[in-house]
Structure formats: structure tokens, C-alpha cells
Design a protein around this nucleic acid. Structure first.
Lengths: 252, 252
DNA sequence: CGCCTATTTGACGCAAGTCAAGGGAGGTGG
DNA sequence: CCACCTCCCTTGACTTGCGTCAAATAGGCG
């Protein structure tokens, strides 16, 4: 199912997000609102872009969750990061010719595709919008760095707890729940994100449950004890580079 | 030891690098050449910036090697990436308020500091230079992603071989050697980059040596068999997003 | 020469992987 | 509406890659 439209309503959440990092002027808001956007729906598991693609668009997540991923030669799948509403998973490709990672829908989702050409033109006319989009790619990079730390230095228990913390925090910030979130991921996929097997994820999830920190059951993550989970996961949201208002929302 | 100067000669290698991705016009070259740059020298191990800093500059590596790094709550140190001449390790911070990682000199090195303010002004006046700098941060992000894959999905042997491949490739591209490179890293630091202990790095280095793929001895990495090392390390340089001329140089 | 730091090696333990079997939940078709 | 199928989760038994601990060796440098 496809639809072509101008950004006005579709991109409002993204425009709000940008407005929270820089104060937008009227002509800048108009430029964002007049971006042509094509919406496309995806089902669980659908690939959206693949390694090696030379995309001419980037897409913003309108609803659902996506996973950025990459394969090793031996067939191992690493989930690099996930994205929720208002995130732009492949904005990373705006100035790169070929994609070095793929993006797949983790559950049923809707994306808004924007042409790189339109984005670049907009950035050239409105340098502050360029800064804002650039900043978005830099925050993604900060998350990649935190995941390197997670994968390289923390043990399995801490790693999964950290993953749950980030997932819950970012979903809460996107308004997708308070302490219970619909997360269409299998234990296999959580394993691919944390560098371990689904069997071990299962054992750790059981530990987290019996420690009354969190529960993950049938596609739903429930945080039972935020402070405890944060401590177990060695989670400090500084790397998310939140705005003060986001920090307040998260603390609440 | 410090020195203030204008970019003219100091930044020439960086200007050449930028010119290899976009064709620069005269006014753009002038803008780059007139950037105020302050050079500072560092000794092995010196921190250059730290987690939590709110830097007002970014610095380009003029000589030497730097490590970007980050610590876990338990004290584990993860090296996130290394940088060589013409790289800009903390350009990532240009649109972020506080640093989520630190950068340290891996050996004696010289850096050229540039004010964020000057860089931002230049980017606003010359949108194509903004694109070029943005691209540099995106390539760094691609390297973070590959390291996630390396840390999460590959076994120790492959991981170290991959690390050596990237190190050798990027040093070769920076003109720092052909198949033998001065690498002022300890086995401890290689372990921090690959998520393992120095003891295990040592065992793996011995295997690589006895397989006649590479040697790492007293601060010097020697590649004995490029094709073999690349295969052992599951290394495909696509993620480095090289220009055609760089690809040719690497293949040679 | 003597100190300091890094490398090297061996013995042992553990976190996480592998293999395999059984159980639940939800969807589908007869 | 029940039977069956297909994923996925769950658990147990066994294996292994890598960590830990500890001690010996080797270089580099004042």
C-alpha cells in the first residue's frame, strides 16, 4: 500500500523532534512541510533496504520498529541498532554511495520515503536544517559506539539489561508506552543484537524476570523496576544526547 | 608545544582528501585554507579529549595515531576506533553538546585544533563543504558499525585478523607504509579494541604468525600475506567507502 | 646494570555455545 | 470447533573459547 503526499501532517512528529533541538523559523518549517513524502507499509521481517543498495531516498519511521543489520562472512547476523517513530534509519546513506548495512521491519510498520535530492536541496538552502539532520546522524553514531562498548566489554546479563533499557527508554520517548511496550522481536533477534545465542538470551531473560527487573513475553517488554534495570544494565542515557525536556520525560 | 597558524600548509592533506570526494571550487579551497588551526603535540597515552567534555574545537590528526575510547561501569575499556593522519576523531562532536567518548594519543602525535564556530560558519557559507565534512562523520559511523559486527559475531581469531586488516589498509591509504607499519599499540590495547584479554590476543597473534599471515612485534605490524589475512579476517573494505583512486591504491 | 613495562606460556575455571527434546500459543483448514 | 501445524520458547546435558591467575622472559632506557 502506497501513498504520495506532502509532508504537512505526515512529518509533523519529525518536525517536532527537529524543533526540539533548534528553534525553527517559518521558512524552515515550510521547507520541511513541503518535502514530498511517499508512505509505504511493510510486514514483519520485510527488508526495506539491503546491503549494497545505492538508495536515492531515505525513510523516516512513521510507525513500527526497524532493525539495521549486517552479516558476517560466516553467516552471523548482527543487529546494529533499532529505530522507532521519528527516527531515520538510513539517513546515514545521504552522502554515501552504497549502503553498508540493511534495514528490515521488525513488525508491521509504515515508512515515509524522501528523495535524497530533495533533502540535499533543502539542506543547501537552509543550513540550520542541514545541521539538524547532521545531528540526527551523529546521535545514531553515538548509539553505535555505545553498542560497541556493550558488545565488547559487558557480560551477557548486563548486555541484555542494557539493550532492554535503551529499547524501553527510546520507546517511552517516542510515546509508545510507559513501562510496557509492544516489541515484536524474537529471542533470536535479541541475541543478534547482543551477540549471543537465543538459548542464552532465554536463560538471561529468566534471570531478569526472577530478579523482578523486567519481563519479556510474547512480544511485550515490561519494565518492573527502572532503577534496578538501569543499574543491572550499566545504563546511562547520556549517549542518547537527549534534550532537557526529553530527560525530564524519561525521569518521570 | 603549541603553534597558531592558518591552514594553508598544515591542512593540505585534509584538503586533498576532501577534494577526492567532491571537486572543490576556488572559494571553497580558500575557505579551507583560511581556517585558523592551532597545532598541539601529544605523547603516548596522553588524553586529548575526555568523556563529558563540552569541546569547542575539533582536531585533525596531523601525525600519529589516536584511539577513541569509552569505559563501562565495571571499568572495562573499549577502543571504539583509531584514527590516522587526515582523520578528524571528534568531528562527531560538532553538533553534540557533550562528548560521549574520549580520545587518546596511541603514540607521539600532532593534532590541529579548529574551532567548531569556524567550522560551522564555513559549512553555512559553503554547503558543499558541509556535505564533505558530514560525509566524513558518516564514514566514521560506518566503521563503528563494522566494529559492532566484528565484536558481536566473529570469533577471536577472525576479530584480530580483521582489526589488523583495517589498521593496515587505512595506514597504507594514509601513506604510512606498504606492508609494514609503525603501530604504537600494546597487546592490551589490541585486546581493548577487539573485546578480549591481552593474554588471548597474544595467543592469537602467535597463530597468525605461524600461519604466515601477519606479524606484530615491538610496535610494528607487518602483513605477510594480504589475501590470506583478508580472508582470515573476513575483511571487505566496502564499509570504508573508498573512492575509486583509494581502491586502486589499496589493491596495489 | 637494573628497573619497568610488555610479552609469553602454562594450568585451571567459567560463561556462553551447541545439540537435542519437549511444550505453548496462535493460525488455518477441514 | 477441533486437529494439526508452525514458530518460538524453555530446559537439560555436554562442550569449548576465552578469561583468570601466576610466574618466567625479554626489551628498552636512564
Amino acid at each position: 500500500m502506497k501513498g504520495a503526499a506532502v509532508a504537512k501532517q505526515i512529518l509533523q512528529p519529525l518536525i517536532d523532534k527537529i524543533a526540539s533541538t533548534i528553534s525553527l523559523q517559518n521558512d524552515e518549517i515550510e521547507a520541511l512541510e513541503s518535502l514530498p513524502v511517499r508512505t509505504v507499509e511493510f510486514a514483519k521481517g520485510d527488508p526495506i533496504v539491503r546491503v549494497g543498495d545505492r538508495p536515492r531516498h531515505s525513510f523516516v519511521v512513521l510507525s513500527g520498529i526497524t532493525c539495521a543489520l549486517k552479516y558476517s562472512g560466516a553467516g552471523g547476523r548482527q543487529i546494529l541498532m533499532f529505530h522507532v517513530a521519528t527516527d531515520i534509519p538510513d539517513l546515514q546513506s545521504i552522502h554515501l554511495n552504497t549502503l553498508d548495512f540493511g534495514v528490515a521491519a521488525a513488525g508491521a510498520s509504515r515508512m515515509g520515503f524522501m528523495l535524497h535530492r530533495d533533502l540535499r536541496n533543502m539542506c543547501h538552502r537552509f543550513p540550520r536544517l542541514a545541521d539538524a539532520l547532521w545531528r540526527i546522524t551523529l546521535v545514531d553514531a553515538a548509539i553505535f559506539r555505545e553498542w560497541e562498548l556493550n558488545l565488547g566489554q559487558r557480560d551477557g546479563y548486563t548486555r541484555v539489561a542494557h539493550f532492554f533499557c535503551e529499547l524501553a527508554a527510546r520507546m517511552k520517548l517516542a510515546g509508545l508506552g510507559d513501562d510496557s511496550f509492544s516489541v515484536p522481536l524474537t529471542q533470536q533477534e535479541i541475541g543478534d543484537a547482543t551477540g549471543m545465542t537465543s538459548v542464552h538470551v532465554n536463560r538471561i531473560e529468566r534471570e531478569l524476570r526472577s530478579a523482578k527487573l523486567s519481563e519479556f513475553k510474547r512480544g511485550r517488554l515490561t519494565v518492573l523496576d527502572w532503577a534496578g534495570l538501569r543499574e543491572a544494565g550499566d545504563f546511562d542515557p547520556a549517549y542518547l544526547h537527549l534534550t532537557p525536556s526529553q530527560e525530564r520525560l524519561l525521569a518521570a
